[in-house]
Computed example of a mutant assay.
Amino acid sequence: MAPRVVVLDYGSGNLRSAERALQRVGASVEVTSDRRAALDADGLVVPGVGAYAACMEGLNSVKGGRIVGERLAGGRPVLGICVGMQILFDRGIEHGVLTEGCGEWPGTVERLAAPVVPHMGWNTVRVPEGSRLFSGLSADTRFYFVHSYAVRRWELEPSEVIRPPLVTWATHGDDDFVAAVENGPLWATQFHPEKSGDAGAHLLENWLHSFR
């Protein structure tokens, strides 16, 4: 039976490309803002493009932060993509304006310091040992990025009790930034797997397999 995935519709773009990419790898996909459907699905995708503040406003309008929190409290898988990853952190700063995020991870989304911004195009990533998200992909695999802001410092303190998240990094210019995170049922990517061809499809399959 195909895993049931909801792509959360909170007014952000890129919904249909995420829907098609997930259908391509065997998921049954619904694009909706309905809370019950989002909670009951096997997996929830939180997409996001554009400004951090606008995405948070849209997410708050459908109580998306609460939906994510309720799913995670029950150990139910969530995948954030691009700004959908950024809003999982404490805050974002764009054009001098600070916006509170969902606070699932400590950290600040800020403008990249590279000479050329936005970071647009294909790039490799540095994957930590033990990653399930990138399982089966080679070290030189490229993914598609388009963003001007990112998390440039990982601020979660190590714990002897809780297994630490697996953090994947990428570099644009001389600027390192968080490219993906795997943290229990909460996974996220700064790049767009739905725009990353076969590599992105493989990554989405890995996500689906994590809860099949």
Rank of each mutant, 00 (worst) to 15 (best):
S159E: 02
I93E: 15
S210F: 09
G200N: 06
G11A: 11
E205K: 14
S131R: 12
Q190K: 08
L72C: 08
A2P: 15
S210Y: 06
R24I: 07
Y52T: 10
D42Q: 10
V117I: 14
C102H: 03
V97N: 06
E182D: 06
D198Q: 15
F177H: 14
A114Q: 10
V181M: 09
S196H: 11
L72V: 10
S131C: 11
R91V: 12
V178S: 07
Y149G: 05
S196L: 09
V151F: 08
A27R: 04
P193I: 05
V146G: 06
F191A: 06
V78L: 02
A199R: 07
D40Q: 15
E182N: 05
H209L: 10
G84T: 09
R16M: 13
G58V: 09
T99A: 14
R111K: 15
H209F: 05
M56P: 10
P158M: 03
R142E: 15
E194S: 06
N14A: 13
V62S: 08
A41H: 02
R163W: 00
G43A: 12
G65R: 07
Q23R: 15
V31P: 00
R71T: 05
D40E: 15
V46W: 02
Q190G: 07
G26C: 11
T99N: 13
W169E: 05
E57G: 12
V31I: 14
L22T: 06
V45S: 02
F211W: 10
V49D: 11
M120S: 14
S33G: 15
L203F: 04
V7H: 04
T108R: 13
A179I: 07
P115K: 12
C82V: 06
L203V: 01
L15F: 12
V125F: 08
D34F: 00
M56W: 08
G58H: 11
V29A: 10
A38K: 00
V178K: 05
H119I: 02
S33Q: 09
P77W: 06
V83G: 07
R111N: 03
D175R: 07
A18E: 07
A37V: 01
T171M: 09
H209W: 06
T171Y: 05
R76F: 11
A2Q: 12
E129L: 04
